[in-house]
Amino acid sequence: MKVLLLNGSPHKNGCTYTALTEVANSLNEEGIETEIFWVSTKPLMSCTACGKCSELGKCAFDDKVNEFVKKAYDADGFIFGSPVHYAAATGAITSFLGRSFYSNSEPFKYKPGAMVASARRGGTTATYDQLNKYFGISQMPIISSYYWNMVHGNTPEEVLQDEEGICTMRQLGKNMAYFLKCIEAGSEKGLTPKEVPKTKTNFIR
Rank of each mutant, 00 (worst) to 15 (best):
K189W: 08
G190F: 10
L180D: 07
C182Y: 08
V159G: 07
K181S: 02
H152A: 04
L180K: 07
F179H: 11
K189H: 02
A185C: 10
C182D: 15
E188W: 00
I166N: 09
E184M: 05
F179W: 15
K181E: 12
E188D: 13
Q161C: 03
Q161D: 11
L172Q: 12
G190V: 04
Y178Q: 13
M169W: 01
V159H: 02
E157F: 03
E184V: 03
V159N: 03
P156K: 05
Y147T: 10
S145D: 11
G190D: 00
E163M: 07
S144R: 08
V151K: 05
Q161M: 06
R170W: 07
A177Y: 09
E163C: 02
V159S: 07
F179Q: 10
I166E: 04
I143Y: 09
T168Q: 10
Y178M: 13
P156S: 14
I143Q: 00
V151W: 03
V159T: 10
K194H: 08
L160M: 13
E158L: 01
M150T: 06
G165Y: 02
M176S: 06
H152N: 08
Q161A: 13
T155F: 01
Y147G: 00
T192E: 05
N154K: 14
L172Y: 03
P197F: 00
A185M: 01
N154C: 04
V151I: 13
S145Q: 10
Y146D: 14
G173Q: 09
A185S: 13
L191I: 13
S144P: 00
C167N: 01
M176G: 07
P197W: 04
G153C: 08
S144E: 08
W148R: 09
K174F: 02
T155N: 00
H152I: 10
C167L: 15
I166A: 10
L160F: 12
E164I: 03
P193I: 00
P197C: 01
D162W: 04
C167R: 00
M176C: 07
L180T: 03
M169N: 11
E158D: 14
G153L: 10
E163H: 14
K174M: 09
V196A: 07
E188C: 09
V196L: 09
A185Y: 05
Y178W: 07
Y146T: 09
L191M: 14
D162N: 15
L180Y: 05
Y178R: 11
L191W: 01
T168C: 15
V196M: 14
F179K: 07
Q161N: 15
W148S: 13
T168V: 12
E158H: 02
A177L: 05
E184K: 11
V151Y: 11
A177C: 11
A185F: 00
L160W: 14
E163S: 12
Y178S: 09
T168H: 08
N149L: 08
V159D: 01
G165S: 08
Y146N: 14
L160P: 00
G186F: 04
C167A: 15
S145A: 15
D162M: 06
I143F: 06
D162V: 08
V196W: 13
E188H: 01
E158W: 09
G165W: 05
K194L: 06
E195Y: 02
H152M: 09
